[in-house]
Amino acid sequence: MAIDWGVGRYEATGELLAPVSEVVVELAGPLTGRSVLDVGCGTGNAALAAAARGAVVTGVDPASRLLEVAAGRAAERGLEIEFVVGDAAAIPVKDQSAELVISIFAVIFAPDPAAAVAELTRVVAPDGQIIITDWLPGGALTVINGTAAKFMGEVLGGPAPKSAPASLAWHNAEALRAAFAPYGFSVEVEERSLVFEEASAEEYLEQSAQHPMAVSADRALSQRPDAEELRAELKSRLLAAAESVNEDPEGFRVTVGYTIATIRRS
C-alpha cells in the first residue's frame, strides 16, 4: 500500500512529536550561524526549532503540502527557512553542505534505506553530525500500529514485492554501525520516552485517523465493496489495542520509547 504523506492532516501528529524536535535540537548544541538540514521535515518542527536558535536551515520533504504548512509556520514566527521538495534517496543539496543533519521519525520510512544512508553521509559536513530518531519496538505504538498493519495485510493480502529493499533497524546501534561504518562514521544511540495523552482512547484514535498512513489505508479499503464493514472491524480492533496499552483508566495515556542516534565521522 503506497503512502501519500501529503494527504490527511499530519499537523495533528506533528504537534504530538514537537517535544522530540526540541530535545534533539537542544542536544545538537549551539546552532547560531550553523547550517542545518532537516530531512523529512514535515510540518517543520525541527527546522523551526533550529532556526529559532540562529541556524541557517533547509527543510526537505517529499510532500509539497507539508512544506507549505511548514513555510507558513516559519513566516508566522518571522523565521527564514528554505523548504525544498525532495526525498532521502536524492537529497537536493550540495555535498558536505550541512553541519547538522536532522531527521525526526522521517528517514526511518525511506523505501531504500541504503540510498538514504549514502545521501546522509554525502550531505553532512566533514566535522558535522547526523541525528536520527526512531521508535523503539515492542511498546504501545507497536501494539496499535501493528494491529492496523496486520488487519490491512489480511484485507489486501499478497506477498511483499521481491524488489523491495531490505529494511534498516534505525533504532538499533549495531545495525546503524554496520550501515554507516563503510562511509567512515561512528554511531551512538540513546533511549528517551514521550507521553501521548488524550481524553479517551477513542479520541486518540480519531486524531490518529488523520495521519497520512491511516488516510492511505482508508483509501485502500474504500476500493472494496465491503468497505464499511471493514472500517468497522478495523476501528474495533484498534480500540481494543489502544485500551490494552492505556496507562490511565480515567482517560488515555501511553508512554512510548524512542531512540536518538548521533552519527559522526570516525
Results as ranks from 00 to 15, higher is better:
D38C: 11
G40A: 14
V25I: 15
V57E: 14
G59V: 02
D38M: 09
G54F: 09
V60P: 05
A47N: 04
D38T: 02
G59T: 04
E26H: 10
R65L: 12
E68V: 10
G29Q: 06
A63L: 08
A47T: 10
A28I: 06
A46Y: 02
V25S: 11
P30I: 09
E68I: 07
G72I: 03
A71L: 07
R53P: 04
L27P: 03
L67S: 06
V56R: 15
G59F: 08
N45P: 08
V57P: 05
V25L: 11
P30A: 10
T58W: 02
V24P: 12
S35A: 10
T58I: 13
V57S: 13
R34W: 00
G54N: 14
T58A: 12
G54Y: 11
V24E: 14
G54S: 13
P62W: 01
V36W: 03
A46D: 04
G40Q: 07
A55W: 00
V57F: 12
G44M: 04
A70R: 04
R65F: 15
A51T: 10
V36C: 09
G59Q: 06
L37E: 03
C41S: 11
V24Q: 14
T43P: 15
E26T: 12
L27F: 10
V57C: 13
G72V: 04
A50K: 01
A71Y: 01
T43Q: 11
V39K: 05
A63I: 03
G29N: 07
V69I: 13
G33F: 06
A52P: 06
V69E: 05
A55T: 03
V24I: 14
E26I: 03
V24D: 12
G54A: 15
V36L: 13
L48T: 02
R34G: 00
R53K: 14
P30M: 07
A46W: 00
A47Q: 01
N45K: 05
A47S: 13
G59D: 06
V39I: 14
P30Q: 09
G33K: 03
L67M: 03
